[in-house]
Amino acid sequence: MLRFLGRRLWQIVPILFGVSLGAFAFLHAIPGDPARLLAGPDATLAEVQAVQARLGLDRPLPVQYGYFVRNAVVGDFGRSYRSGDPVSRVLAEHAGPTLELSVISTALAVVAGMTLGTLQAVRRNTLPDYCSTVLSVAGISTPSFFLGLVLIYVFSVNLHWLPTGGMTQLQSVVLPGITLASASAAVIARFTRSSLLEVLGEDFVRTARAKGVTERRVLVRHTLRNALIPVVTLVGLEFGFLLGGAIVVETVFSWPGLGWLLVQSIDFRDYPVLTAEILLFSVEFLAINLIVDVLYAALDPRVVYR
């Protein structure tokens, strides 16, 4: 297992190299001219060429890639075409808001999802089970911009309870948090339910019941704790997924996170920022998948990694 782990970690280096090359080629294959976009809608050709020269876009592509790799190796991802700021600073500025939103919405999703999931398992095939199933599934079935806009108009415009968007006050995170959480909550509920049902069928639970332990105590002391372990894995995955930034929700709520940055960088074909964002997401996913694979092996003894 340790050797497997070591090899997988070592593999990250060539993978990231491959990702950077792929991202670079891919980004340049999409039509777009960053100099023209930055120079503005009524720029003359001379102005466009000036911006091109300033950004180094007048050099041949392989040369541009060479410069990128040379600098990236020492941790310098260049400067944003759009703002001229170092890419690392740009990413850091937008990672904070995304982290905050991810933490809050994961917390909301865990509370809602586990409550609903437990209800579903304990009251299996009764009305409360059906209602909470429909409720949790409805969360994942609604387009997020629809849900977000409805929340804004109900809670901000009509009731004046919460701010409409932006990141200006502590409460600002509530509505985007709920919108994002609604999808994760459904997955967590589904997972909690099946995990609980599985554990409820285990021998030690039967034994406890046979010994006359109360149903509530069975649930809290014996079942939940055991059922929790796989749920925690899933929560980790969902959290990692959210860390990638939520494009639609961040747009609707003017939340200046990584998703927002991605959209803005696409609008301007800000290749350095886009490449760095792709690399960041890749690192995140490689790490998460490595963890999942390790757990996978740990949980299912039939899977052996060599």
Partner: peptide, 16 residues
């Protein structure tokens, strides 16, 4: 690993 990367790749970029 290729699947991981495809997974990590921002979908909106792919769509564009």
């Amino acid at each position: 690993r290729a699947a991981d990367i495809l997974f990590a790749f921002p979908g909106i970029l792919l769509a564009i």
